[in-house]
């Protein structure tokens, strides 16, 4: 299939009489295609709108109450309404922050290596290849790996920190790839200008290259965080749910929004289901806020093509 093999019949169709309008068959096909691609877009929007509206309708009532944001589910059963998602919100945020604190330096330094040092080196190609593999690792496998390491090998308990380690595996490739893209956008002229002033390479990277790419890197981090906050699979293996407020990363269980949803999703009664939808709405609010922030920052990015 190439353009060249197709042009002859186009020529035959088009050449005999350029004055006559296109044949009806061709016009119908063209119109059909136009309608089809518009329809495809509309179809794709259905789930998005449906999900957002449904979450607002079904989760809105519990989320608007003040206690939702201040109380935990401690002592709540499927028969008692009330309580809140505070424990799950701080659990999700805490794990996300710890994950980011580990992932971001690792990811940024790796991206710096790949762009500033390792371009066209053998080790650079190996790292890039490994990063590709890591990008494709399913989140459940990341959870299994940390389980094999943390629980089976080290004989430790399932604790929130182990969840963070699994999430690091998922966040690092996302942030590394986006940082790489941003570093690539920094014009080489700026690096040269800095070198020509007698500035060393690491100073050039930290004081010229990174600040120039800063907003783009932040965007990548926020999008990576949003992805990690919604992850559920590794939590099933490593982070059992707790209804109480927990802040200790190294002992006990910690509630999070995904596991809060998972804990009661099979209930049929209205009270737990309301909580499930409320937690889902809360989760998507957090995720969308991060996405929005990321995209806004990207728009005011200093690096432009």
């Amino acid at each position: 299939m190439s353009a060249a093999t197709h042009t002859p019949d186009l020529v035959e169709q088009a050449l005999p009489d350029p004055e006559t309008p296109q044949s009806t068959g061709r016009r119908v096909k063209d119109r059909t295609a136009t309608v089809a691609v518009w329809a495809a877009f509309v179809i794709a929007m259905i789930p998005l709108v449906w999900i957002i509206v449904a979450l607002l309708v079904k989760g809105g009532s519990v989320v608007v109450s003040a206690s939702w944001w201040t109380n935990s589910q401690r002592g709540m059963t499927t028969l008692t309404a009330g309580g809140g998602a505070y424990h799950a919100i701080i659990g999700t945020l805490l794990q996300a922050v710890v994950t980011a604190v580990i992932s971001v330096p690792l990811a940024i330094m790796t991206a710096i290596y790949l762009i500033e040092y390792g371009r066209s080196t053998r080790f650079g190609r190996i790292v890039s290849f490994m990063l590709d593999i890591l990008t494709g690792v399913p989140s459940i496998v990341a959870g299994l790996f940390i389980y094999a390491l943390w629980v089976t090998t080290f004989g430790l308990q399932r604790v929130p920190f182990a969840v963070c380690l699994a999430l690091v595996l998922l966040m690092v490739p996302v942030v590394t790839r986006s940082t790489e893209e941003m570093l690539k956008l920094v014009p080489n002229e700026l690096r040269e200008a800095s070198y020509a002033l007698g500035v060393s390479k690491w100073r050039t990277i930290t004081s010229i290259v990174l600040p120039t790419a800063f907003s783009g890197i932040i965007t990548g981090i926020l999008l990576g965080l949003a992805r990690v906050m919604g992850e559920t699979a590794p939590l099933l293996i490593l982070g059992p749910y707790s209804q109480s407020i927990a802040t200790n990363l190294f002992s006990g269980f910690m509630g999070t929004l995904p596991t809060m949803i998972n804990a009661e999703r099979n209930e049929v009664a209205a009270i737990p289901l309301d909580r499930v939808w409320g937690a889902a709405l809360t989760l998507i609010i957090l995720v969308l806020l991060l996405n929005l922030a990321g995209r806004l920052i990207a728009r005011y990015s200093a690096v432009r093509k």
Binding site: E189, E192, A196, P211
Partner: peptide, 11 residues
């Protein structure tokens, strides 16, 4: 050194 295209640091 001064280069072909002006390259002030954008930040």
């Amino acid at each position: 050194m001064v280069f072909q295209r002006p390259n002030p640091f954008p930040t």
